[in-house]
Structure formats: C-alpha cells, structure tokens
C-alpha cells in the first residue's frame, strides 16, 4: 500500500527534483511556537517534515539538537504532546508526510502497541528511531510496518556492502544516508564521496535515498540534491530557532519567520538541482 511518503516521492520524481526534508525539534522553544514553525514548513518549500521528539540523552546528536531538546523538555514537551502536535497539523494538511524522529526509550515507555495506534491516528507516516538498528527489528520496526507506518533506516559510511542488505531489509519509505560518521551538526564531507555512496546504496534498493548531516546552505542543498533523491536539513533549522532566543528565554525575533526564511532559501537550492538522471 502506498503511503503518504511513497506518494510524495512519486510526485517529486514526476517534477524531476529532489525532496527537501526538514527536521525541527518538537516543542522548541515552546509548543505553540513550534507548532507555528511546523505549519509554515510546507508553504516555505519543505516536502517532508521530520518532527523531532525530545529526549534527555540524545547520544547521536550534537550540541545544537541537544540544547533544542532540553529547551523543549523544560517547557513540558513529551511524546504525548508531540503526537498531539502532529494531529493538529493533520487537521489542515493531508498531504505533507510527517516522520517522527527520536530515540527509543520514550516510545518503549509509552508502550509500543499504544504508540503505534496513536501515531497512526495522529497522521504519522514514518519513524526514524536512532538507537534501533536492524538487530532490534522485533522491538518496533516490524510492528510499525504492520501498522502501516514506514520505518526509515539510517545508513552510514560504516555500513559496508556486506551489511547494507541487512540494513535495507525492513526499511521502507526512504533510506536516510548519513553522509559522515559523527553526531548531527558536524561539517559536510565532500560531495563526490556522497554521490558515490548514494550510487552504492542504490545498487541494493529501489527506495529513494536522501542525504543528511551537515547541510546548511542553499548551495549545499543544490549540490547534494543533484546526487540524491532528497536533502535533509536539521541542525541549521534548529540553529535558526536558537538564534531567536535570548539567554533568558525571551525572543529577539519570530522563530517561525526565521525558519521560514531559511527553508525558503534551501528550497530554492533544491529546486535548482534537477535530478541528474532527469527521468
């Protein structure tokens, strides 16, 4: 059954351009502002939304996303409220895919079965759970697939050809290629290596391959976009929010506007990079 994510990639393929996948932290700097950021994303050119679920111990994230998660938690954000945010978004947007991204423990504590039921009801289309490798597929991946939710896996430079089939086995929606070993927000590696990696993954799967980790500017988005089916931007957006917040928590500018401006720029980059293969 085609999911919202499948339909989106099919539509983009027809358009002949890569997807712009935007990550933001749910509840940062607070629920209402964050919801405003989310609602503005499609209009600014985001094709797929990655909704970050804050976690107290984000072991794979750099300082920017760590801080964003802590800001959100301090303001009372939780997995329950993150699902609520998605559900409210769905009231006015039926087409933009929402991928929930975070760590396993909040889901485990919520209860996997109850979580999947509520996720479907909230209009969640996919999950990226950083600390669930294929070795742990029984935990959430397989139940999620049964519930009709895409389970999107990260492939990394350490995922060699021998391991790729295992990583791709239960992956659906798209493959998220992490373009370097490291935490989120690290520097971008050179693009020829990224292109080669995307090629390598595509030998093993027909799924779209999107590339993330380190993309900050429209120009980078354009270059990466020419080598992949999509570009993920996360830390740069989270930083755009952070830059509107004073140390005392007051706002110097409208975070939603700051994010909108940034995403519009990135979107122009992505739209400038017609897919190399131009099907």
């Amino acid at each position: 059954m085609a999911t919202r994510i499948d339909r989106k990639f099919a539509a983009l393929k027809a358009e002949g351009r890569p997807a712009l996948v935007t990550y933001f932290m749910g509840g940062d700097p607070d629920f209402d502002t964050s919801f405003k950021i989310m609602k503005g994303l499609p209009g600014s050119g985001s094709d797929i939304i990655e909704l970050g679920v804050p976690f107290s111990d984000p072991m794979a994230d750099g300082p920017a996303i760590q801080a964003a998660g802590l800001r959100a938690l301090k303001k009372g954000m939780s997995l329950t409220r993150t699902l609520e945010m998605a559900a409210r978004f769905r009231e006015t947007d039926e087409t933009t895919p929402i991928v929930l991204m975070g760590y396993y423990n909040p889901i485990y504590i919520y209860g996997v079965e109850r979580f999947l039921k509520d996720a479907v009801r909230s209009g969640i289309d996919g999950l990226i759970v950083v600390d669930l490798p294929p070795e742990m597929d029984e935990e959430l991946c397989i139940p999620a697939i049964k519930a009709g939710i895409n389970f999107i896996r990260l492939a990394t430079p350490t995922t060699d050809d021998k391991r790729l089939p295992k990583v791709l086995q239960n992956t659906s929606g798209f493959v998220y290629y992490v373009s370097m070993n490291g935490i989120t927000g690290s520097a971008l590696p050179d693009t020829s290596r990224v292109a080669a990696a995307v090629e390598r993954i595509k030998k093993h799967t027909d799924l779209p391959v999107v590339v993330g980790f380190g993309v900050k500017t429209a120009e980078q988005a354009k270059v990466i976009g020419s080598a992949a089916d999509g570009v993920v931007v996360g830390t740069a957006i989270v930083n755009a929010v952070a830059n509107t917040i004073n140390p005392d928590g007051s706002l110097v500018a409208d975070p939603a506007e700051a994010v909108a401006t940034m995403v519009q720029g990135l979107s122009s980059g992505v739209r400038a990079s017609r897919l190399a293969a131009a099907e």
Partner: peptide, 20 residues
Amino acid sequence: EEGMFGIFGGRFVAETLMPL
C-alpha cells in the same frame, strides 16, 4: 546470541556503531 539476559541487554545503538 543477541546479547540478551531475558528481556535485558541488547544492542540499542546508532547504525554507525553497529559494525563496530
């Protein structure tokens, strides 16, 4: 084999670390 002691233990790590 999976590193489990009953329901405890396991390998809950990011893909980057799995091969390691």
